[in-house]
Computed example of a mutant assay.
Amino acid sequence: MKKSKGKKKHPLNWREVPARLWRKKWLRVIAVIITILLVLFLTARFWNPIIFPPVKQANIGMSFSVKQTQMLGLDWRETYRALLDEKTGMGIKHLRLMSYWDLYEPEQGKMDFAQLDEEIAIAKEYGADVSLAIGLRQPRWPECHEPDWATNMDEKKWQAALLNYIGAVVQRYEKNSTVISWQLENEYYNGLFANCRLATPTRLQTEYDLVRHYSKKPIWMSMSDQFGYTKDMPTVDRYGFSVYRVVYSTGLYNGYMTFPTPIWYHRLRAAIISQTTGKDIFIHELQMEPWAPTDIPYASYKEQDKSMSVNQIRESMLFAREIGAKDMYLWGGEWWYWRQQRGDPSIWNTVREEINKAEQ
């Protein structure tokens, strides 16, 4: 019996592959959708202001960290006053200050708030108000500002020591009219940059109950830029989220990346949180300093400008205003002054121009 001959196979011509694939309807639809999304993403800066008008008469504040001025080799008082002075400086009227546990209780039971007292007194001198960060996790690296003496304590004693410190801070400034609110922990559940000890819902609720016991002032909490919701958070008075645009990534690859989250995502997220909680939403941290592969003093101006240049400052401010939150705290004032003191006033002047524009 003769074997039947199978269908003769023709060698694959790779030049014909795109044409063959294009004949598949579902692939054409996907390609068109991807193309539209890519075009929209690349041209967003032109149509965003039309669809999402920038908020006007914004309330612009700023975070200020004594630790950051020390890292930059600056005099904190000189830097702080320059940022607050309305005539010759930036004229900031809303501040987020830090009550670092390791800084103000360097030895267990021995608290010294002289420096923080001075920060708040200077703010009052310039007519600025203060939102005071409290708790273990506060802005600036290493995020978890734990004193050395607490590192090896068992869980029960450690939490008691932390609660004792938080209570002392709240009671000290409860009657100070310059301090208008408390930020309880900073991005408490954000494990991407730091994993603070015992970051549980139970501990967070205990801290909230303690602060509310001692204070009638508003309490707010924060979430990160790309993700986070109010799940497992106490019902506070306000919620904040950060906005970062260009950062140096060390995750999937080493290099600079622009966060792809569009304005509509931030607006939708804010609307959902506001509608489901009935609470106000604002930007607690708008990136206005470089995110380089090294600390700022070790990065050249060229390297710094890759993630925060004059143009990026303008783009980031517009982006934040298009999100629609009227209240926003800028991040990076210490760096603006550092660049100015080193002979480059362009960053300082640009930020001042953008603040003036946003407040009109």
Score class of each variant (00 low, 15 high):
Arg20Asn: 01
Pro106Tyr: 05
Tyr265Leu: 03
Trp335Arg: 01
Phe46Thr: 01
Leu84Thr: 07
Arg172Gln: 10
Arg238Gln: 11
Gln340Val: 00
Thr202Met: 03
Glu107Arg: 06
Ile50Val: 15
Trp220Gln: 09
Asn356Asp: 05
Gln226Asn: 04
Tyr188Met: 02
Asp344Trp: 07
His213Arg: 09
Trp47His: 09
Tyr301Cys: 04
Ser300Phe: 01
Gln57Ser: 13
Lys231Trp: 01
Ala320Thr: 06
Trp220Leu: 07
Ile283Arg: 05
Arg339Lys: 13
Arg45Ile: 14
Tyr208Asn: 02
Leu42Tyr: 13
Pro11Thr: 09
Met221Ser: 02
Met221Ile: 05
Ala44Pro: 00
Lys7Val: 12
Asn152Met: 03
Leu210Asn: 06
Phe46Tyr: 14
Gln205Asn: 14
Trp26Thr: 06
Asn190His: 15
Lys5Val: 08
Asn311Gln: 15
Asp75Val: 04
Thr88Ser: 12
Lys231Ala: 02
Ser99Ile: 10
Trp141Thr: 12
Ala123Met: 01
Ala199Phe: 05
Met317Ile: 08
Tyr248Ala: 12
Phe64Val: 11
Glu16Ala: 14
Trp335Glu: 10
Lys87Thr: 13
Asn190Lys: 10
Asn190Ala: 14
Gly135Lys: 01
Leu83Phe: 00
His145Ile: 06
Gln171Trp: 00
Phe282Cys: 02
Glu155Met: 09
Tyr253Glu: 14
Tyr173Met: 04
Asn13Lys: 04
Val169Gly: 03
Leu116Pro: 07
Gly228Thr: 01
Lys8Glu: 15
His10Phe: 13
Gly228Ala: 09
Asp148Glu: 15
Ser274Phe: 00
His145Cys: 10
Asn195Arg: 13
Arg23Glu: 15
Glu107Phe: 03
Trp264His: 05
His213Lys: 12
Ile283Gly: 00
Leu116Ile: 09
Asn195Met: 04
Gly278Phe: 05
Gln226Glu: 07
Arg339His: 11
Thr206Ala: 08
Phe319Ile: 00
Asn190Leu: 14
Gln171Ala: 07
Asp295Ser: 13
Leu74Glu: 12
